[in-house]
Amino acid sequence: MCLGIPGQIIAISDPARQMGLAEISGVRREVSLAPVADRPLDRLVGEWVLIHVGFAMAVIDAAEAAATLEALRELGEAQEALDQMAEGDRALAASPAPAEGAA
């Protein structure tokens, strides 16, 4: 449910109504900043937010996003190491490839 997409706040358009201008891949729309207005509005300019039905619902945490991607990168390396080990042991195990199962 609930289509939500990241956009960047580029200006505060109506401070009284807590409205700001968000840019999503070059498309602009005025959005309500109310859900993330628990901080001074001008501090939101430049922030990336998650937008749902015209409301900025959350400020995206750049450090958490980077941590998730880093974990995935490490997982990739670990898998590669496992693959190399598996190759060495090929005589012992005949493990099926993952992508071929559900044709």
């Binding site: 289509l3 997409i5 999503i24 891949s25 070059g26 498309v27 729309r29 937008i51």
Partner: peptide, 13 residues
């Protein structure tokens, strides 16, 4: 596809 067309499509589903 232009970035803006992709963006508009993401916004509106």
């Amino acid at each position: 596809l232009r970035t803006e067309v992709k963006g508009l499509c993401e916004i509106l589903g």
